[in-house]
Structure formats: C-alpha cells, structure tokens
C-alpha cells in the first residue's frame, strides 16, 4: 500500500502526473469496503467450494478399500460413474426421482396459478390465509411424514371415512409407497409454490388487465393473452425451485415411502453409498450425478423461458 503514502496524495492534489493506484482502484469500485467481503468469501471457499471440489476429485478416485465400483470390476478414474450407470439398481434411482419430483413440482405450480389468480387482489382474510399456508413449513418433512403415516394409514381417518361411507370396500394403500412421498411433497411444496406465484402475480401491473377489460376482453382472454405471458418467467423460476426441492427429497422418501423399492430416490442412493457402505467415493460421485441432472432440468426450463416474452411489465423475475 505504498500508493496510499502522503507523497502520492500530495502529488494528486498538485494535479500533476497520474492518480495514485488507490484512486484508480477506487474509481473501479475497489477500496477498503471490499475487505468486508473477505470473511464471507473465505467461509464459502472453505465450506462450500472446497468440499465440492474435494468431492469431485474423490469421485474420480474410486475407493480401494471396500469400494463398490472396484468390487464390481470397474477400473480407472471413471469407475464410480461406470458402475452407477452400469448397475440398474443405481441407475434407476434417477428415473425414480424424476417420476416423483417432476409431477410433484408440476402439480404444485399448476394448482397454485388459478388459486393465486383468484387471490391476487386484496380481500379480508388474505393475510390470515397466507399465514396459514406457512404452517406446513413449520411442520417440516419429518412431522409431515409422521402425520401422513397415521392419517392416511389403513386405520387412519381418511380410509375410515371412505370405508364407512361405502366409497371403497378395502382401505387404500396411501403410505409406504409412491403416493406417500407424493403427498408429502405436495404438502410441503404447495405453500412454497403458491406464495411465490402470488408474489409474482402481485408484481404485474393490474392496469394492464383493466385496459384489456376496457377493450372488451373476457376474463379467460385477459388471463390467456395478458396475465399468463407476463407470468411465465416467474412460473419457470417457481417450477425450478419446486423441482429442486422435490428432486432432493430425502427424509420423506425414507419415512412415508418405500426406500428400498419404488421410492429409492437418488439422494438415498448417495447417502447409502457414503454413510452405510462407507464408500465416500461412490457417495460423492452419486451426489455429483444428482447435481448434474438437476442442473440439466433447470437449464432446459430456463432455456425455454428465454424464448418467451420478457418485458418490463413482467413479474418481479
């Protein structure tokens, strides 16, 4: 920091020569304030970037001692990946996760749209209702799963009501299978999607719709031709976030699902490899695959979004 010396400052005030390094940096926004960033960046480098890179490197060096890939005869740095895609028990977890995650995210977003559309204005119980929607977030996945097992179980209220009113003869199997996980994802994911869609809808200028109304457009036409196109960018973001939540489902897939069969999602496979078989290398490789699939879906959705209209009157996205 020689540039900060008094001589540099005096040279500047004299108006001769080039400005000091400190001033030139300050012109580009670099000054001591940036030191405030240092703890945060160091922290993330140490606990986020380094573990990620370590995991990536680990996934390319298959574990010698008890490693699943070597035991199954795969060699070389790609052994973990070859093993994962070569073994249908591992490979199918991607499909299982997509089959649970995509419909759950889609239902959460699509059901949110009409409800949020009806509620975008002001009405008396709006704040109460949005507050109530936060309750599932307070429950968390574990209690939701616990409650689902009892409420939807063979002797639970729902089956009892359906049997007593002769809607069905035998209790429905709704937990410890695909549907249990699906319901759990809807209960925790719907409020999340709804509140996001509502905030995007509130960001659309209502005068646009009024203008359309004055021009004689009916409610369907107003929604279809005015609101929906403006909402699409926000919907894409909401879908991505709902999907990421659903794709990383872990506790409920174990608790209300069938964790060794129809709901053996990819996060269970990664956890199983790393902390039950103690093959950290395969566990890291599975995590990397999980991240890659997720990013691929997000890239597809956002790429599609970019083909849509993006204008100043759009949602807050």
């Amino acid at each position: 920091m020689t540039a900060a010396s008094p001589s540099a400052a005096s040279r500047l005030t004299a108006g001769s020569g080039t400005p000091s390094l400190r001033h030139r940096l300050a012109d580009r926004g670099i000054d001591r304030v940036l030191l405030l960033l240092v703890p945060g960046i160091l922290f993330l480098l140490l606990l986020f970037v380094y573990p990620f890179l370590y995991g990536l490197q680990l996934s390319f060096s298959p574990q010698i001692d008890g490693g699943q890939a070597l035991m199954n005869g795969y060699q070389g740095p790609l052994a973990n990946y070859l093993y994962f895609f070569g073994d249908s028990y591992q490979r199918d977890t991607i499909w299982t996760t997509l089959v649970i995650g995509l419909p759950a995210a889609l239902v959460n977003v699509l059901v949110s749209v009409p409800i949020a559309y009806r509620m975008r204005g002001r009405f008396r119980f709006k704040r109460t209702l949005t507050t109530l929607l936060v309750v599932p977030i307070a429950l968390g996945t574990v209690l939701t799963a616990d409650g689902l097992i009892e409420y939807l179980g063979p002797a639970g209220w729902l089956n009892k009501a359906l049997v007593d009113f002769h809607v069905i003869n035998e209790p429905l199997t709704l937990v410890h299978n695909y549907w249990g996980v699906f319901f759990s994802l809807v209960i925790t994911g719907f409020p999340f999607a709804f509140l996001l869609v509502l905030s995007y809808l509130s960001g659309i200028d209502p005068n646009l719709e009024r203008a359309a109304s004055v021009m004689g457009a009916g409610w369907w036409e107003r929604f279809r031709r005015v609101t929906l196109p403006l909402l699409v960018p926000g919907l894409a973001i909401t879908f991505c976030m709902s999907f990421v939540l659903a794709f990383s489902v872990f506790p409920s897939a174990n608790l209300v699902g069938d964790p060794s069969g129809t709901t053996r999602v990819i996060s269970i496979a990664a956890y199983h490899a790393a902390f039950e078989q103690f093959d950290y290398s395969l566990g890291s490789a599975t995590s990397m695959i999980m991240g890659a699939v997720m990013l691929a879906i997000i890239a597809l959705v956002l790429g599609w979004r970019n083909t849509m209209f993006r204008g100043p009157a759009g949602g807050k996205g």
């Binding site: 986020f48 573990p51 995590s287």
Partner: peptide
C-alpha cells in the same frame, strides 16, 4: 443433500 454429502465427508 447434494452438497451435504461431500461437506460431511470433509
């Protein structure tokens, strides 16, 4: 869960 597994490993 995605970054948690490498993080826990470290």
């Amino acid at each position: 869960i995605t970054y948690g597994i490498p993080l826990a490993t470290v």
